[in-house]
Amino acid sequence: MAATASNVCVSLDGQRQVLSNASLSIQKGTLHMLLGPNACGKSTLLRVLGGLLKPDSGTFSVPSSIGYVFQNPDHQVVMPTVAADVAFGLGRQKLPAAEVHRRVLEALRLVGMEDCLERACHTLSGGQKQRVAIAGALVQNPQVLLLDELTTFLEAGDQAAVLTAVRAAVDGPQRVTALWVTHRFEELTRADAASFMDGGRVQMTGTPQNVLRRMHRMKGR
């Protein structure tokens, strides 16, 4: 398994229970989608796995190298130009310029943005910014990518481009594992596996078709 969470509980301000015994296992080299209605705890579970939130109880295990991409790319793309922003993630590693250039180019090629190296970030569209944010995470060679509702603000075209970029990263030579949080059913068609969350816990996990079928059955009752 690339990442696991077991009986994770999180409460906000010690009162509202956001996660109650949430458990999840993600297989290596897959695009795993985590679905659920608003405020069911998807993003909170992602934050726990990303090390941004400490759980009240429960255990989780993730590789040492993880990449996190946030919902709003405007928060994540911090440098004024694309190349500098993608290279920002390598800031703590003292690398020669040629190596940085190679890795930046490789990451941007994976998301189909290799022609935008010099573009100013504020001139990019929402989808392009999101892909730059993904490249910024990929440049660090992560084993697991945690993706938090990337397509919320995007139009249909940009949404497809971002999905394709993540799919390319998963299918690429690095065999990255991606956990994609979403509440859009149509995105399930590109996933390898899916889980459905509700009420702060993971209700079911399986193939996208199985999860969809069971959800419709639940809805029909």
Binding site: Y68, F88, G91
Partner: peptide, 23 residues
Amino acid sequence: VAQALHARGFVSADEHTIYTGLL
């Protein structure tokens, strides 16, 4: 933004290198 910087491995300005002139 601060949270995103943290997630991208930023700890402090002194320990972080900004790469420029890549192209």
